[in-house]
């Protein structure tokens, strides 16, 4: 069953269309990756899914309901949560407060405490730093916080925008291992990456986006063998 289906999505900044007629779908329990070069339109797609941008045309169907044009906070309430590009932690606030904000829509404090324990179990390094301002964390720790914060919303569908950006290979491995564990726990994932080899390794399905259009799609293992992909994205 497909959790999310995107159909004919077109998004423009003023007169220039950054995303043009994009179609893709994400099945329940999958990791789907969207890879593409700088400026291909990946972030634009994600921000539109999250309600931060309004589509010019197209449908975004989440669990059977068209959510295109819905306000961002309402989309979070429907269980689709974004980990934004560049982490975007609240630098002046503590790690604990950042996590607390992730569970803003949860009115039950016992449930929030339970989610926090679960997030800290996944990212033990954050526990020692709960009282520290988020801005004082390393890049890798900030990425963990950004993911932990999104998990506090108890998402069914997690959208990640280049979680590997600017991180050392070892940290990237750690983050990707976490993503695999999230899938095992039943969270569906849309992963946007420029680090195509790592993304294709973990994903079930892959889409390649070039200048605002889907150029190629299929099972990740097949996309990873495609000669054009190898030449353009895998440094082959």
């Amino acid at each position: 069953m497909s959790t999310l289906a995107v159909c004919g999505l077109t998004v423009a900044y003023g007169r220039t269309e950054a995303v043009r007629g994009v179609d893709f779908s994400i099945a329940d329990g999958q990791i789907v990756c969207l890879i593409g070069a700088n400026g291909a339109g990946k972030t634009t797609v994600l921000r539109t899914l999250s309600g931060q941008l309004r589509p010019r045309a197209g449908r975004i169907v989440l669990d059977g309901a068209d959510i295109a044009g819905l306000a961002a906070h309402r989309i979070v309430a429907r269980g689709m949560v974004q980990v934004p590009e560049g982490r975007q932690v609240f630098a002046a606030l503590t790690v604990a407060d950042n996590l607390e904000l992730g569970a803003w829509l949860c009115r039950d404090s016992a449930e929030r405490a339970r989610r926090r324990e679960a997030a800290l179990a996944r990212f033990p390094r954050l526990r020692e730093r709960l009282r520290q301002p988020a801005g004082s964390l390393s890049g890798g720790e900030q990425q963990m916080l950004a993911i932990g914060r999104a998990l506090m919303a108890a998402p069914r569908l997690l959208l990640l925008d280049e979680p590997s950006m600017g991180l050392a290979p070892l940290v990237v491995e750690e983050i990707f291992a976490i993503l695999a564990s999230l899938r095992r726990d039943g969270i569906t994932i849309l992963l946007i990456e420029q680090n195509a080899s790592a993304a294709l390794e973990i994903a079930d399905t892959a889409y390649v986006i070039e200048t605002g259009r889907i150029a190629l799609s299929g099972p990740a293992t097949e996309v990873a063998r495609n000669p054009a992909v190898v030449a353009a994205y895998l440094g082959g």
């Binding site: 931060q52 961002a72 906070h73 309430a77 609240f90 607390e100 904000l101 919303a153």
Partner: peptide
Amino acid sequence: RLGLAIRAMAERPDTAALMGIA
């Protein structure tokens, strides 16, 4: 919590909306 949300919005309004804050 409301004050926390206000401080979050002061720092990053767009990201605050991603937390589900209206």
